[in-house]
């Protein structure tokens, strides 16, 4: 069984209000060495009876078509056979 991990993050040029709020909270907690926080999403797709190459293709397609919005987000896919 292949397992695909999909990471969806806001593009660098896009302001992240949630990450910004978390960063402010960290700063007020004294974590002043944290320069920036970006919040993202993480998905695990279970693909039984699917080979690694096909799992990668399928996960890429799903990440592009459904899990991310190309206007604001980019994605990265990792597959574990």
């Amino acid at each position: 069984m292949a397992r695909a991990r999909v990471y969806v993050t806001l593009k660098k040029s896009v302001f992240d209000p949630q990450g910004n709020t978390i960063h402010d909270a960290l700063t007020s907690l004294g974590y002043d060495r944290v320069a920036d926080v970006r919040q993202g999403k993480y998905f695990e797709l279970a693909l039984p009876d699917v080979g690694a190459d096909e799992a990668k293709r399928t996960a890429e397609e799903i990440a592009h078509r459904v899990l991310s919005n190309p206007v604001i987000e980019s994605y990265r896919v990792e597959v574990e056979p």
Binding site: L10, P17, Q18, T21, I72
Partner: peptide
């Protein structure tokens, strides 16, 4: 696309 409101 819509982002979270500036003030969240």
């Amino acid at each position: 696309a819509m982002l979270r409101n500036r003030a969240t």
